[in-house]
Amino acid sequence: MRVTENSTLTTVRDSLNKSRLRMSELQKQNASLKRINAPSDDPSGSAKLMTIRNDSIDNSQFEKNSNLAKTFLNYTDSSLEDVTNILVRAKELALGQASAAANGPSSRLMVAEEINNLMNELSSVANRRLGDRYIFSGYKTNQQPFDEKGRYAGDDGKIMVEVQKDVFVGMNLPGREVFLGANQVDPTAPNGVRGLEEGANAVSPELAIKQSAERPNDDAFRTLESLRISLMTNDIDGIRATLDPLDKIRDRVITARAQVGSRVQGIDTAINNMARNNVFNAELQSSIEDTDLIQVVSDMAKEETVLRASLQASNKMIQPTLLDFLK
């Protein structure tokens, strides 16, 4: 086979080119510490990367949602605790005045005054706000839920918050079901919005608040009001008649607190899941896109040797021709 100067030069040029191309590829990896610098570097890997990145963007939003829902629920919980204390105190007072022998009408008048204070307290708890949002008025968070007569102006809206992919938690309790004992809205009923039916309420199965047949008797405001009136009118039967509803209402509030507690627990589970998911994703992402530094550095050293060797060889190959020896 004849070997011409041109083919020698082409060989030298091509092999140097190739070596430099590999070097630059390795240097790019070394500089960015990433194995994938364009989707075509690893098409299937980068497709996976894109979903992982979406996941982590989603997760950070879920985390914010969870924290916000938790704040809301914790505030609801402490408000419900206050409600429980008010009810316990009211029951205590009612029990104390429930027998004709124990106290006289004047002491009942004084107790009625205290019940009045409790009623004011109850109404202030029921109208609590977090930021500029009333926590017990359902969707109508700009609306004070209860007026001075205990009439409800909110709605039964449950503010659902996504705390994990397709896992929704209600972050509020509409005031009607807590304070008035109104029928709970069936949480499984489709709400008529496309894309929302699925997965809602997956965490924290709702503890249905028992529907009460005698609604007025379950109404915290009315019960206290009738207790107060009975005390003022010295109506001992009337006082006794409030004892049972007060228990019922207290039970309902405690059940509601349990419900809030289980939602918070659900959120904590979601947060833990997410943290695990984040760690797993970070690991996966790193294994897909990060450079194996040891590998790259040793490859570079190898490539450099190759490059030097071919440069040296080229030096020897290019120089002599017959003309050098004919002089």
Partner: peptide
């Protein structure tokens, strides 16, 4: 989804879904 309900978020959830 309903008028005059500032915390009604059902459509926001639907859109994010």
């Amino acid at each position: 989804k309903e008028a005059n309900a500032p915390s009604d978020n059902r459509l926001a959830i639907a859109i994010s879904g």
